[in-house]
């Protein structure tokens, strides 16, 4: 049968066959590579509560704040007043830097791009688009008469 009568001759079939095989082969090579370079989702152990030391922690007294490891998240813990401890996510909502608490200015500040948050974690100046996530802080007296232990938990 000639090519003209069928419209789909031997040559065309072979070209189509080779083309698709080649495409398929390429896909078989590229797909695993693309999947491989996309990092797998790794479930992280959920942390609900951490002990952040005692209320007379020298670092806390001296600098006015400390960064607490809440699982893999950094959380900033500071004293807004006597026995008034507050904790917020320490990750700046702008571009992911870690914030600090400035005792003198009474504010949370990000050194990367000058983002400012108030003592309630609200973004008040600079580029941050959202407030910092708040954490709950409890003072637990384990031994009477001794300084209490600061416990930070998810709000």
């Amino acid at each position: 049968m000639s090519e003209a009568t069928t419209g789909f001759g031997r040559r065309k079939f072979i070209n189509w066959f080779l083309g698709t095989s080649l495409g398929g082969l390429l896909l078989m090579i590229v797909y695993p590579i693309v999947r491989y370079i996309s990092p797998p989702e790794i479930p992280e152990a959920t942390t609900n509560q951490v002990e952040a030391g005692r209320e007379d922690d020298p670092e806390l007294l001296e600098k006015g704040y400390k960064i607490v490891q809440f699982g893999v998240e950094p959380v900033i813990l500071f004293a807004a007043g006597p026995r008034d401890f507050r904790a917020f996510s320490a990750t700046c909502t702008h571009l992911d830097c870690i914030v600090e608490f400035q005792k003198q200015e009474k504010r949370i500040f990000c050194n990367c791009h000058g983002g400012v948050y108030d003592l309630n974690g609200r973004n008040v100046a600079g580029p941050p688009p959202r407030p910092l996530t708040a954490y709950r802080v409890d003072l637990v007296e384990t031994t009477p008469g001794q300084p209490a232990t600061i416990v930070v938990s998810k709000a």
Binding site: I67, Q69, P74, I76, A90, C97, I98, V99, E100, C110, N111, C112
Partner: peptide, 10 residues
Amino acid sequence: DPFAPAYKNI
């Protein structure tokens, strides 16, 4: 240190 604040002049 992933748990230290960014310092000035980053």
